[in-house]
């Protein structure tokens, strides 16, 4: 297995080069269009009775898509140094884990109410 695959990405020198590139106005407009469509989908899903049983996963997927688009294009994580992605996604992971565990831990207690 080639070590070279790793080497050429780990040299921190490439970060400097990643700084300047930014998307153009047209790209921004395209992203805005997709975001609008996704939001319309979200609201649509909410109002369609047939989809109520799978509402949660559908909404989560749609909002994850929006989240990704805003973070990647508007906040240009897609183009910037990967360090910024790290700075964002590491706390985000932690936040998600805290959210999951708190809802579980306190949701669990809800099953044992006092008198």
């Amino acid at each position: 297995m080639s070590e070279s695959a790793v080497e050429h990405v780990t040299a921190p020198a490439h970060h400097a080069a990643a700084e300047s590139h930014h998307p153009t106005a047209v790209q921004y407009l395209v992203v805005a269009g997709i975001l609008t469509v996704l939001t319309v989908c979200e609201i649509g899903v909410y109002y369609i009775p047939a989809l109520q049983s799978v509402l949660v996963p559908l909404l989560l997927i749609l909002s994850a898509g929006k989240f990704y688009l805003v973070a990647a294009y508007y906040m240009h994580l897609h183009f910037d140094s990967r360090i910024f992605s790290g700075l964002f996604f590491f706390p985000l992971t932690l936040a998600a884990l805290i959210l999951i565990s708190l809802t579980l831990l306190l949701g669990f207690l809800a099953h044992h109410p006092g008198p």
């Binding site: 400097a16 964002f88 706390p91 998600a96 805290i98 809802t103």
Partner: peptide, 30 residues
């Protein structure tokens, strides 16, 4: 790193805010 400190700072602050909102949201959900 060849990055501007202010930008690194802003991203770190955003990271910290993420946890803040996670705690608020989980309280709401519970």
């Amino acid at each position: 790193l060849g990055l501007d400190s202010r930008k690194v700072g802003m991203w770190s602050f955003i990271g910290s805010e993420t946890v803040f909102f996670a705690c608020l949201i989980s309280t709401y959900m519970v």
